[in-house]
Design a protein around this nucleic acid. Structure first.
Lengths: 200, 200
DNA sequence: TGATCCATGTAAGCCGTTACATGATTGG
DNA sequence: CCAATCATGTAACGGCTTACATGGATCA
């Protein structure tokens, strides 16, 4: 019943429910591998209590769905009050976007790291970005009717493509900075020479 | 004395101290507005206890610096054990990079929002990105000697520039989706018509 | 004179993750 | 037959933020 402001997880729930009925389980999936993964990765331990709270506050309704042979589930739907709460929460100025990268910290210390560690990290990062790109393309195809969704996938695509591009063009450059292992001294010298030549 | 793995904040401290002596106060500044802001924004409540812990574990040393007329301070320096801990922590595979955006959530609901809210958010986002770009350029200039630092600022620049570019070219497009207020109906129709024309 | 910078620290409390508990069904 | 998917929840533990406490120096 109270009208205090929403926690990030509650905001996520209302946002998803705005698009149609859902369950706690499905909300989690959307937040981790779906079209809300740019907002938060919520866990069950955060979602279920948040839904209970939202129901108590009249922002969502619950309906039990018992089907023989399948686990029972609770289907949540947003109410008019819930829509209001969502819109007014979104009206408040959004804080700054956040980008956090353990990978870049590693890159910063390339000169103290074994080459293989950097290579592995670069490969992992590239795989990650390619997976993200695939996800964005999937979402883009699924939401052809929704121009706002298209706008945000376009934004995501632009960022991911730029990262991937930088990685593809500068990866070797970073590996060349790592501590040389015996067998690689000559290679690194060659790379450095190439770079020096290019700089002229 | 124990050798358990480092918390993110402890890792930040060691990373900064690797580049030279520092104080808790300066570490915070570097993490918030300096060249480690891509890693974490740590608060004093996290940093000071972490430094105490690192000192107890022999990973850093402390030296008191009392100067008349200025607040006393504690200058921390990394030890060999600290360097080891840093490198081995960095050797572990970095988790995925994280991007979190309240702004994109707002964009997704453009169709339910007043135009002004979107305009304000777009402006704020652009300002943020431009500030980030300026910061990156400053860091790039300050670290001309350090190729790894140059590599990561290059990465940052690529991402930020791509975001900014998308925003500059598609902002109007997003505002056109918002709920029309009386005075704007004609404008929006005109914009939509333009878009439709462009699509042909 | 009042804010901002320098500088260190403590304590309460929140928010969320992790791990556990349960259990039927489907697919490899 | 084992793993994964579907499905909901609880409890403990942890890390971090927020707010508070202190105080001189500098700047507008």
């Amino acid at each position: 019943m109270s009208a205090d402001s929403l926690s990030p997880v509650a905001l996520l729930c209302l946002a998803i429910l705005h698009g149609g009925e859902s369950t706690g389980y499905e909300i989690k999936k959307a937040s981790v591998e779906g079209d809300y993964s740019y907002f938060i990765d919520a866990s069950y331990g955060a979602i279920y209590p948040a839904l209970v709270r939202l129901a108590a506050d009249g922002r969502v309704t619950v309906r039990e769905d018992v089907r023989p042979g399948r686990p029972a589930r609770k289907i949540y739907a947003i109410t008019a009050a819930g829509r209001n709460a969502l819109v007014s929460a979104l009206c408040e100025p959004p804080g700054p976007d956040v980008f956090r990268s353990r990978f870049l910290l590693l890159a910063k210390f390339a000169a103290s790291m074994p080459a293989q560690v950097l290579r592995d990290a670069l490969r992992a990062r590239r795989a990650e970005l390619e997976a993200e790109l695939a996800l964005l393309e999937r979402i883009e195809a699924e939401t052809a009717h929704d121009p706002a969704a298209q706008w945000i996938t376009g934004y995501g695509r632009a960022c991911v493509a730029a990262s991937l591009d930088y990685l593809n063009h500068h990866a070797d450059n970073l590996v060349a900075l790592t501590i040389p292992s015996a067998g690689q001294v000559r290679t690194n010298i060659a790379v450095r020479q190439t770079l020096a030549d290019a700089a002229e």
